[in-house]
């Protein structure tokens, strides 16, 4: 049984990693879009960021030096990533469900990392400390994820506002996490669960002699399936958020040589939009279309 569980875990992690890389590549390779920023932009100068202002507030702004405000960006990003600050501000009801869920996942990830590091360090004193912290993280993570998962599931089920926008897939997404955690908790409470350190070392060395309770095995298998599935769903928003924030909402970079070179290439694309006023016959480039004026030509012909 342990062999099967381990194979699921390895596969889940691998598929997850490949899926995440795929997502990053998909978005990173998309063309640079037209600017579409949204204020406030937290890397603006400190004196402007408080009211959501931009460098456009300065006369002759192009002559002024732009100082990157990393502290401003971090002061936005860290509370957003760790505490879901945006949700707290704009959708408190959801935050009470979503935050425990996400915090639980963070803690479970933390437990996994600490356990892996602990297993690498073997029987040292440091490993013991790491496993002790990991155990606390794992229990807290399981409890919070279960609570959050059930709360999100329930909201999806009963909130009339979500009725139009909830499919079976959405219910299984959040429900799946909760079920996996409940199974893991049942296994851990069964009395036959090996210590976390044993499990971590076994995973690292593919020691399939370790014996796992059936509930734990089921929970780990389900968790691994979900893990591998995440990047192929909207739940990969941890990847998406980098792009939606850094390359869209906060991308206020004025045109420069690098951007201009890429856009010059896009202007050679040949669009096929078929409305007559566009004048795209499949041979004209974006550059040609943008520099022609069909209405003026029509007027001259008349």
């Amino acid at each position: 049984m342990a062999t099967l569980v381990f194979l699921f875990i390895y596969a889940g992690v691998l598929v997850f990693a490949v899926g995440c890389v795929g997502r990053v590549v998909q978005y990173a390779r998309a063309p640079i879009h037209l600017r579409w920023e949204l204020y406030p932009v937290p890397h603006e100068a400190p004196e402007r960021v408080t009211h959501g202002g931009s460098y456009f507030e300065q006369g002759d702004w192009w002559k002024k030096e732009r100082r990157p405000n990393l502290a401003g960006e971090l002061s936005f990003m860290i509370p957003e990533m760790l505490l879901l600050k945006g949700l707290w501000e704009y959708n408190r009801k959801l935050w009470y469900r979503s935050f425990p869920f996400h915090a639980g996942l963070y803690l479970l990830m933390g437990a996994a990392v600490l356990s892996t590091v602990g297993a690498v360090f073997g029987g040292s004193g440091l490993a013991g400390v790491l496993f002790a912290i990991a155990r606390v993280c794992a229990w807290a993570g399981l409890a919070l994820t279960t609570f959050g998962g059930v709360a999100l599931f329930w909201r999806r089920l009963v909130d009339p506002e979500l009725k139009n926008y909830t499919g079976l897939g959405d219910l299984l997404n959040v429900g799946g996490f909760a079920i996996a955690c409940v199974l893991a908790i049942i296994g851990a409470l069964s009395g036959s669960m090996p210590p976390l350190a044993t499990l971590a070392r076994a995973l690292l060395t593919f020691d399939s002699t370790v014996r796992l309770p059936a509930a734990t095995s089921a929970g780990l298998i389900l968790g691994s399936v979900i893990l591998g599935y995440i990047p192929y769903t909207h739940m990969a928003h941890f990847v998406a958020k980098y792009f939606t924030y850094h390359t869209i909402r906060w991308d206020d970079a004025p045109n420069n040589k690098q951007i201009a070179a890429r856009v010059a290439e896009y202007l050679t694309y040949r669009p096929t939009w078929s409305a007559p006023h566009i004048g795209a016959d499949g041979t004209k480039t974006w550059g040609e279309i943008a520099t022609t004026n069909p209405p003026e030509k029509q007027a001259v012909r008349k």
């Binding site: 998909q26 978005y27 640079i32 704009y90 998406a240």
Partner: peptide, 22 residues
């Protein structure tokens, strides 16, 4: 070729909205 102008933001919105109603 047709929509380089807004492709990336549109893709991200299509793929990652969680429909949370915020």
């Amino acid at each position: 070729e047709n929509n380089w102008t807004f492709l990336q933001p549109l893709l991200l919105t299509m793929e990652h909205c969680t429909r949370c109603q915020t």
